[in-house]
Computed example of a mutant assay.
Amino acid sequence: MRWECRNNGKRYRIRAALAPSTAAAFAAGLFLSAACPGFAQETRQFSTKKGTVLVETLATGLEHPWAVEFLPDGALIVTERPGRLRILRDGKLSKAVEGVPEVVARGQGGLLDVALDPQFATNRTLYLSYAARGDGGYGTVVARAILAEDERRLADVQEIFRMNKFTGTTHHFGSRIAIDRDGSLFFGIGDRGDDERAQDPRDHAGSILHINADGSIPASNPYRGATEGLAEIWSIGHRNPQGITFDPANGTLLTVEHGSRGGDEINNPLPGRNYGWPVITYGRDYSGAEIGEGTAKEGMEQPLYYWDPSIAPGAIAVYRGKMFPEWDGNLLVAALKYQLLTRLERDEGGAIVGEERLFDGEFGRLRDVIVAPDGALLMVTDEENGAVLRVSKAPTE
């Protein structure tokens, strides 16, 4: 393992042959703490199958950060699950942005995703997903707002979606947001701990949903104008989709969702399709009991990929950047339980043909991963003392 930092124009690098928890690595950390004040901004070096990468800690001290996005000027905007929205600029975290809607920070609930409108540079509009209180308990809500020019507050906050059935459970809220090329929003909601809800097209739980930026219903939705399902629903049969993205190269929609004890899935949700939960799954119940009717059934879709045992996926991204051309088209999935980033290789047809696991246990629970404009990766760690991390290519010497 290597650590590297810079101080007063000098670069310090030290290598420990033992794991970071051992005495040798601890001594290395002490050395760097003395050589590099503010050691929180450390840089560590890792070998991968496709080369060497650096992982730099950009910020610490965040309370269960859930999502990170780039602002047009290169600063970052980060959500914290207790309900705070923060700006990270020049290595400094702002105070909490005022005007964030009231959230329910219980269980897996709280302030979840943040997504920027495609015209954010001119309209300052962003979208938030979060757990809220309502009749019957708690549920997932999506709102839009305008970030003030001074970045101190949100203005014109408008709720544009509220799920139709709130309950007392505090898990499986979803809910990451992906914005399509036309500005419409795709997002997922989990089954809210009641698996049968995922098979009901008249229930928002256990679904991928699709709305316009103002909350209206897109013409492409399969149940628009129909009676057999809710107009916002795109697809059903999802257990707890916490990752969603578009492939920038071809516009393909991809999701990653939690299984039970195994059965985490990557899917390509298509309109009106049923992705099986809880009728079919590649996982078992936490008790070890079988779930549903097996792994396949007519009329239900198969995943593009699944994990057994579960890695507990938190987010998915498609790599189309310039920094790692050898990763072009790869899928990147942040994992909570196994505390890693998995890189999935695809063939020309899009089928997943290989997997490499990175940073296993090195940084804690990885909640989000995105591709930065320069091709680096950004990740956040879902911890009480959460961090923002940057993954870049190591320079050749």
Rank of each mutant, 00 (worst) to 15 (best):
V391R: 05
E293K: 15
R192Q: 07
V97Q: 11
H238F: 07
R86T: 09
T281K: 01
G237E: 05
G99A: 09
A334W: 05
G183I: 02
V157L: 02
I291N: 09
T342R: 05
L341E: 02
G354P: 00
P271G: 06
N385E: 14
D214L: 08
M379S: 00
A219F: 01
T125G: 05
T122N: 09
M379Y: 05
L76G: 04
V97W: 01
R153F: 04
V371L: 07
H171A: 12
V103K: 03
G283M: 12
A249L: 08
R390N: 04
A27H: 10
I280N: 00
N274C: 04
R144L: 08
A315R: 14
R6Q: 13
E56V: 02
L230V: 00
G83D: 11
K337W: 06
E151G: 04
F187M: 07
I211N: 14
G110R: 10
A335N: 15
A213Q: 13
D113M: 09
G299A: 12
I160A: 08
V369G: 01
Y127G: 06
I87Y: 07
G361I: 04
D113T: 01
T43M: 12
R320N: 14
Y127M: 05
L93A: 03
R320Y: 07
S33W: 13
H204Q: 08
P118K: 14
G206C: 11
T57W: 08
V157W: 10
W327R: 04
L32H: 15
S184P: 00
P248S: 05
H64F: 10
P269C: 03
D285I: 02
H171L: 12
P82L: 12
M323E: 15
E384P: 04
E383G: 06
I244L: 10
P65R: 10
T381H: 04
A35I: 03
R273I: 02
V97F: 07
G9K: 03
P271R: 10
I179M: 00
A67K: 07
A148L: 08
I77E: 11
L340H: 14
V333I: 15
R239N: 13
V391G: 09
G51Y: 11
R106W: 01
L331P: 03
L378H: 12
S392A: 13
G329S: 04
L332K: 08
A16M: 04
D135W: 00
D368L: 09
D191Q: 06
K297N: 05
H210D: 00
P101S: 01
L358M: 14
V333Q: 01
P82Y: 09
S260T: 07
P101V: 11
N240G: 09
Y138Q: 08
A35H: 06
N212W: 05
W3S: 09
G272Q: 03
S216H: 13
V388D: 06
A19L: 13
A34P: 00
G107V: 02
T396S: 15
L304C: 00
